[in-house]
Every structure is written in structure tokens, then in C-alpha cells.
Computed example of a mutant assay.
Amino acid sequence: MQSDMLPAILSMFINLESLNIQIYDWKRLASNCEQAIYALITRSSLSSIELKGARFRDTSLLPLLRCLPTSLESASFSDVFVDRWSYRDDLQNASAELHKLRLASLHLDSFAPTLLHWAIRAVDLKCLQDLHTTVKEDTI
């Protein structure tokens, strides 16, 4: 994932409908690769995205959440960890930037309470038909 080839390869996929991302340590991901992933998500016609087994540093998850397209119908976050970050604080500073996602399906099986706070603010809960989540006591 440190290659200069990855951004060039990702730029070719403009008609993706489904994307599964599994990168354990985003701390080691080169910034050009990270930006290429965000660009791919933003410009594609994604209806489904899955992020699995990822550990983010501080606020590096926020740009990914902000670039999710309104075309999404299904989102899944499994085994996602965020080091030392309170999404609520960032939401107060960036609430105008959020757009409502009209997801039919949302899977939050994560140890990142920040994702629950994000979902409450960014997902139109009236559209949800399927919700799978694991909520730990300290999350609430």
C-alpha cells in the first residue's frame, strides 16, 4: 500500500458499485494512497461499502466518513478502532459539512463509539430497514 501505482490503479475505477476495504493499520498507509481511496469513494457510484479490520489514528477516520457518497444504500464497519478521538467534538465544529445518508442497511460491529455518534448525526434513521450493531456499555 506504499506504492505509487495504487493511486493510478484506483483512479481507473469510476463505476464501482461495491467496495470492500480491509487495511489494518491506516497509520502506515501512505498519504497518496489514503487520498486515492477517498477520491475513489467520492467520485464513484457506490451503493455499498464495507470497512473491515481497520485501526485509525486520531481524526483520520473523519475524512473517510465525510466523503461517503449519498448514493450509498449499505454501509458496514466491522472491527474498526479509532485511537484517542471524540467524534462529538469534531461534529460540533463541522456539522454544516454533514450530508444525510439514506442507508437501507447499516452494520456497526465496532469498538469505536465514534461511529455510533457519526451514524446518529449522518444517517437518516427513517430510511434504515436493517441495523446490525454491537454497543458496549461504555459507548452509551
Rank of each mutant, 00 (worst) to 15 (best):
A119E: 02
F77T: 05
E50A: 15
L62F: 03
I21L: 14
L61H: 06
L40N: 08
I120Y: 04
I9V: 14
L19K: 08
N20C: 07
S45M: 05
L62C: 08
Y24W: 01
T134I: 10
R28D: 03
L62A: 14
I37R: 04
D90S: 15
C127H: 11
L64R: 09
L19R: 11
W26D: 04
R28V: 00
I120H: 09
D4L: 14
L62D: 06
W26F: 09
H117Y: 08
L101C: 06
L106Y: 01
N15T: 11
L10E: 08
A36Q: 09
L72D: 07
E50Y: 04
R84M: 04
I23V: 13
M12N: 14
S31H: 10
H107G: 01
S60Y: 03
R55A: 07
L116D: 04
T42P: 00
M5T: 14
Y87T: 12
D89Q: 14
A104V: 03
H132E: 08
S3F: 02
I21C: 07
A119V: 01
R102F: 02
S47M: 02
N20L: 08
S95P: 01
L29K: 09
I140L: 12
M5N: 15
A119H: 04
T42E: 10
N20G: 05
A104F: 00
I23S: 04
T139Y: 11
Y38R: 13
L108M: 06
S74A: 13
H107Y: 05
H132Q: 10
L108Y: 05
S95A: 13
S86V: 09
A96S: 13
I37M: 04
L115C: 06
T114P: 00
S105Q: 11
W26C: 07
I120L: 06
H99E: 10
R28W: 00
H117C: 05
E97Y: 05
Q22A: 11
N20M: 06
W85M: 13
F77P: 01
L98R: 13
